[in-house]
Write a protein that binds this DNA or RNA. Sequence first.
DNA 1: CGGTCGTTTGATTACGATCAAACGAAGTGG
DNA 2: CCACTTCGTTTGATCGTAATCAAACGACCG
Lengths: 236, 236
Amino acid sequence: MLRKLERRARLGEDDRDALLALPHQLRQVSAGAHIIRDGDRPDFCCLLLSGFAFRHKITGEGGRQVLSLHLAGDFVDLQNGLLEVSDHNVQMLTDGEVAFVPREAIKALALARPAVGVAMWVDTLVDSSIFREWVVNVGRRDARTRICHILCEFSLRLEEAGLAKHHRYELPMTQEQLADAVGLTSVHVNRVLRQLGEEGLISRQKRSIVIEDWARMREAGDFNARYLHYDTCAAA
Amino acid sequence: MLRKLERRARLGEDDRDALLALPHQLRQVSAGAHIIRDGDRPDFCCLLLSGFAFRHKITGEGGRQVLSLHLAGDFVDLQNGLLEVSDHNVQMLTDGEVAFVPREAIKALALARPAVGVAMWVDTLVDSSIFREWVVNVGRRDARTRICHILCEFSLRLEEAGLAKHHRYELPMTQEQLADAVGLTSVHVNRVLRQLGEEGLISRQKRSIVIEDWARMREAGDFNARYLHYDTCAAA
DNA sequence: CGGTCGTTTGATTACGATCAAACGAAGTGG
DNA sequence: CCACTTCGTTTGATCGTAATCAAACGACCG
C-alpha cells in the first residue's frame, strides 16, 4: 500500500517506518457506506486497503457528479488531513477495508519527515491532474469520446494496480455511476456502450469489460496517459 | 504575494525569509503569452505577480477547456515543481509580470522547511477543490446555472484578492474564454448573460460585471463558497 | 480608413435528456 | 421452493437545450 508513495518520492528507511507507524483504526465497510460527507469536519483521513471507493458531489437540483474512483492502496482523502471541512462525499463502491488515520498524525508526519510530506503532496498533485482531465472530459468531449476516455483510464489504472491484464477488467461501478462520472444519463451510457460493442471496440458481459482494440479505443477516447504521471518520482 | 501562503499555514520568521530568498527570474509577459505548454518538461514554476493567467487543455478535436483562472499572487504552477511533465497549458490572459522559480529550489525548500512545504501543499489542495467544483459545474449543471456559478466564484475570489468590491468587478476574460471555462459556446454564453441582465440578476457594460442581487445569484448558480476553503489554515 | 476582434442576434439542427416500459438476475420472505 | 421485490440493464419514442451556421455591429488599432 505504500508502494505507491514510494514511487512518488525517494523515501529513506526511517520515512517508511514512520509511515507504517502511523496510528490508525481499521474498519470493514460495506458497499454504499459513507466515509465522509460534504460539509463534515473529519478528524481523520482514510486509506483504502481493499475494495473500491468514489468521491462525489450532489448539486442543488439533486444531480450527482462522480469526481474520482479509488482503488485499494489509495490514500483517498489526504485533503482532509489539511483542509478543515470536506467539500465532497466519499463513499464505498464495494465492500472493503479502510484504515482511518488521525488528521494530526498526518500533519505531524509531514512536518517531521519532509520527504514523506513531499511524497504525499505529489500523490495529491496527481489526483489534481486527473481532476483536470475530467474537467476536459465532461466539458469538451461528446458522449462517445467521454466514455471511451474513461474506459481507457480505468484500464490503465487497474492494470497499474495489478487488478487487470491485457485491457480486460471488471468495471467497479454500475452504468448509472459511470454516467454520473461522465456527466451523462445512464440511458445514454448504455446506448453508447452497446454501440462500442457493435463496432468491435470493446466487448462485455455484465460488468466485465475487454478493450478489443486498444489503438482505436485510445483514438476514439482522445486518450493520452500523460496526465496519470506514471513516470513521475520527485527524487529527494 | 506570500500573504496567501501565510493564510494556509503558520509560518515562522525563518520560513518567510526562506520564501522571499527563493531564487527567481522576473519577466514581463504580454496577454496571450504562453508560460508552459502541455507536454513540456519545465525546469521552473511560476508565480504570478500581476495580471491574470489561465490554464487550459486542448482536445483532439480542437476544443479548448479552460481549467482555472489565476490572479496576481498565485503560485500558478506549483505542480511543475514536483511533476516531471506538464499536463496542460498555462497562458497569460492579460499583460503581467511573472517570477520564474527553479523547480529544484521549490523541492529543496519543501524539504528544508516542512512548514513551507505544507503551506504550498495546502495551496494546491485548494486548487484541487476548485477543480472538483468545476467538474460538477460542467458535468451536472445547465448553462444558466454554470454561468451564474462561475460569476459568483470570480466575484468572491476577486474580492478576496482586493480586486473587486460589492460584487462589482471587471471580468478578466472574453465571453469566448468564459465559454471555454464552462463548456459552452460563446454564442450561448452571450445569450445567457443577456438573459441574466434582463432578469436583473446582473448588469454589465463591456467586461464590467455587477451582481445586482447576490442572494438570487447564489441561488441561481447553486453556489456555496465552501469549496474555496477560505477558512482553512493548517496550523503548524 | 480598412481590418481585426469581440459581441450580439437570428434560424436551424442535433445530441443527449426525459419519459416510459420491459427484462433478467439476485435477494427476501412466506 | 416459489412468489415477490428490488436493482441494474436494455430498448423505444419524444422533447428540449445548447450547438452550429450565418451575418451584422461596434470598438479599437494601425
